[in-house]
C-alpha cells in the first residue's frame, strides 16, 4: 500500500517536472499569456477610470483573468500530451492515472499561482488597492486554494477533452460553470484581502474554508475519476 502510494507520488513528481519543463522551454506563458493578461488589466484601468470602481471590481477582474487564462494553460498542458499520443503511451503502459492526474494538477497550480502573483501585483499598482500584512496572508492562501480548485477540476476536463478527439472546444463549456463556486469564494476572499468596499480581512477566512473544501472534494473526485474517464 505504502509502496503503491510512493509510486503514485513518484509518477506525479515526474509528470509535474516534465510539464513545467515543457512550459519553461516554450515560454508561451511568459511571452504570450502574461502580456495579454497585463494588457487586459491596463485596459480595464482605462475603461473604469475611477478609483472607487476599480477597487471594488479588482478582485473579480483578477479571478476572471485567472479563470480565462486557466483555459489556455489547461489546453496547452493536454495538447502536449496529445501531440504525439504521449498520453496514450502512458495509458497503454499501465502508468497509474492517479499519478498522472496529480502531476498535472501540481504543474497547473504552480503556473496559476505564478500568474496570479503578477495579476495581484498589477492590481496593486494599477487599481491602487491596499493590502496589509494580514491581507497578504489571506491573499496568498486564497491564491493557493483557488488555484488548487481550478486545477483539480480543469485537469479532469482537460483529460476528457483529449480522450474524446475533437472535443477541445467543449472545455470552456464544461469547465466554466463547474468552477463557479471557486470563482465566487476566491473573489469574496480577495475582496477582504484588498479591503474592497470596506471588507475586513477576517471576513475572508470563511471563504477560504469554502475554497479548501472545494479543492479537497475536486482533488479527491479527480484522483478517482481521471483514469476511468480518460480510458477508452
Amino acid at each position: 500500500m505504502s509502496a503503491s502510494i510512493n509510486r503514485t507520488f513518484g509518477i506525479a513528481k515526474a509528470v509535474a517536472s516534465k510539464d513545467l519543463r515543457v512550459e519553461m522551454r516554450s515560454r508561451v506563458m511568459t511571452n504570450q499569456i502574461l502580456p495579454f493578461a497585463a494588457i487586459v488589466m491596463v485596459l480595464f484601468a482605462f475603461a473604469l477610470d475611477n478609483d472607487g470602481v476599480l477597487q471594488r471590481v479588482a478582485p473579480g477582474l483578477v479571478w476572471m483573468a485567472t479563470l480565462f487564462t486557466s483555459l489556455v494553460v489547461v489546453q496547452r498542458s493536454f495538447a502536449v500530451e496529445a501531440a504525439d499520443s504521449a498520453i496514450d503511451a502512458l495509458r497503454v503502459a499501465g502508468v497509474a492515472p492517479q499519478g498522472v492526474y496529480l502531476g498535472k494538477v501540481a504543474a497547473l497550480v504552480v503556473q496559476l499561482v505564478a500568474f496570479e502573483a503578477v495579476l495581484a501585483f498589477l492590481a496593486l499598482i494599477l487599481y491602487r488597492v491596499n493590502v496589509d500584512a494580514h491581507g497578504a496572508v489571506l491573499l496568498v492562501t486564497t491564491c493557493l486554494l483557488g488555484s488548487l480548485g481550478i486545477a483539480a477540476l480543469a485537469a479532469v476536463y482537460g483529460g476528457l477533452s483529449i480522450a474524446g478527439r475533437g472535443r477541445e472546444t467543449l472545455l470552456p463549456l464544461l469547465l466554466l460553470p463547474a468552477v463557479a463556486p471557486v470563482l465566487i469564494g476566491a473573489t469574496r476572499a480577495t475582496e477582504s484581502a484588498f479591503g474592497s468596499d470596506g471588507a475586513r480581512v477576517v471576513e475572508g477566512w470563511p471563504w477560504v474554508g469554502l475554497l479548501a473544501v472545494f479543492g479537497a472534494v475536486f482533488l479527491f473526485g479527480g484522483t478517482l475519476g481521471f483514469g476511468p474517464l480518460t480510458d477508452e
Partner: peptide, 23 residues
C-alpha cells in the same frame, strides 16, 4: 502504434529520463 508517444518539446534524453522516473 502509428504515433511514437513522445514529448516533442523535450529532448530524446529527457523523454527517456521521464520514462525512467515513471517506471
Amino acid at each position: 502504434g502509428h504515433a511514437n508517444g513522445l514529448y516533442l518539446d523535450l529532448t530524446a534524453g529527457e523523454n527517456l529520463s521521464f520514462w525512467g522516473h515513471v517506471v
